[in-house]
């Protein structure tokens, strides 16, 4: 049984017991999901790549103290939120000195920006922060209501209410923009 066949919790257990290959497997398993979340929070693929890297570097220390009270992805998501907030704060501080540049037109971009990501961001950005969070976790990442509530640090009822509002608003925005299934 290879590492890729193991569950998230089993991988974390292996890493805690000192298996460094398990950490590589954790990175491989979660890097796309963490990058996508960071991409929506930071509106910039380059920043998102840096933030994803920072999340995993911190996880290398933090996961050793993981106590399995929540799913490993929930823990990683909270770290991602924390890191993205730090990046946004730093960027705002830098923006006071420099003219804010359009992140989508950065010439030194190393990461190919997907047109799809831009479309998603265009809609999701319009949502209030908590609704955006619930859409990303519940709709896009397909977490359960319980895990979403745990990741967001709120009750399950709050998740349902936020999702209801977010879907109504997304419908409205998508109708206005003429977004339709190709």
């Amino acid at each position: 049984m290879s590492l890729d066949d193991k569950t998230d919790a089993e991988l974390v257990r292996l890493f805690k017991s000192g298996d460094s290959a398990a950490f590589d497997a954790i990175v491989r398993r979660f890097q796309d999901r963490i990058f996508r979340l960071a991409n929506v929070w930071l509106y910039d693929a380059q920043y998102a790549a840096d933030a994803t890297q920072e999340v995993f570097v911190r996880s290398h220390k933090g996961l050793r103290r993981f106590r399995f009270r929540a799913a490993p992805f929930t823990w990683l998501y909270r770290t991602t939120r924390y890191v993205c907030n730090e990046f946004n704060r730093r960027r705002r501080a830098d923006a006071l000195d420099d003219e804010p540049a359009d992140p989508d037109s950065a010439p030194e971009r190393h990461v190919a920006e997907h047109e799809a990501a831009q479309r998603v961001r265009a809609f999701v950005q319009e949502l209030p922060e908590r609704q955006r969070e619930v859409v990303m976790l519940r709709m896009f990442e397909e977490l359960s209501v319980r895990d979403t509530a745990q990741a967001m640090g709120c009750r399950e009822g709050t998740v349902k209410a936020l999702l209801h509002k977010a879907v109504a608003r997304l419908r409205l925005d998508m109708n206005e923009a003429g977004f339709s299934h190709e």
């Binding site: 890097q31 796309d32 963490i34 990058f35 996508r36 991409n39 693929a45 790549a49 994803t52 190393h110 990461v111 997907h114 799809a116 990501a117 479309r119 998603v120 990303m136 896009f140």
Partner: peptide, 8 residues
């Protein structure tokens, strides 16, 4: 669209 985005 969201899930099509991949890490570098």
């Amino acid at each position: 669209d969201y899930q099509a985005v991949e890490a570098p």
